[in-house]
Computed example of a mutant assay.
Amino acid sequence: MVPETSCSYTQDKTDFDSAPVLKLFTPDAGATWLLSAIDREEHDHAFGLCDQGLGFPELGWVSLQELSTVRGRLRLPIERDRAEKRLNAHVRDARHAGRIVA
């Protein structure tokens, strides 16, 4: 079970048609984060598609510090992977499937 991390949705005009620059995932818990931007003023906040493996992917901001503490069932840390689709395609697919499909 992944500890809950917040992914707060924003109503601003953040461009989410960009390619994710960073894909993070838990190798032992099914959670995935596709991050495409870091806040210029608050460097701890990244924007992207967040999926804690619970069937409710969210588009919004997440704390990088918070993510650094996440561990899965086997206590493995989050790992980095490359994403190939544009972020809006991941959003569409995740909303349809109820989880991030990468």
Rank of each mutant, 00 (worst) to 15 (best):
A37L: 03
P27T: 09
D93E: 13
D81Q: 12
H45Y: 14
R99T: 12
T14W: 04
V91Q: 05
F47W: 07
F56G: 08
I100D: 01
D39R: 11
V2A: 12
A102Y: 07
G55H: 01
I100K: 01
D17M: 06
S8D: 06
F25R: 13
L59H: 00
R82F: 13
L76Y: 00
E42R: 11
L35N: 01
A94H: 08
R40H: 11
P77A: 15
Q11S: 14
W61N: 14
R73N: 10
L34R: 03
C50T: 03
A94D: 11
L64D: 02
Q52S: 13
R95D: 04
F16V: 00
V62T: 15
I100A: 12
C7S: 13
G55A: 10
W61S: 15
E84Y: 07
L76V: 00
R82A: 15
A97P: 03
D81F: 01
F56P: 00
A46P: 04
A89T: 09
G30E: 12
A94E: 09
M1Q: 06
S8F: 03
S8M: 06
S8T: 02
S18F: 03
D93L: 12
L54C: 11
T26L: 03
R40A: 14
S68V: 02
F25S: 15
C50D: 02
T32I: 12
A102V: 05
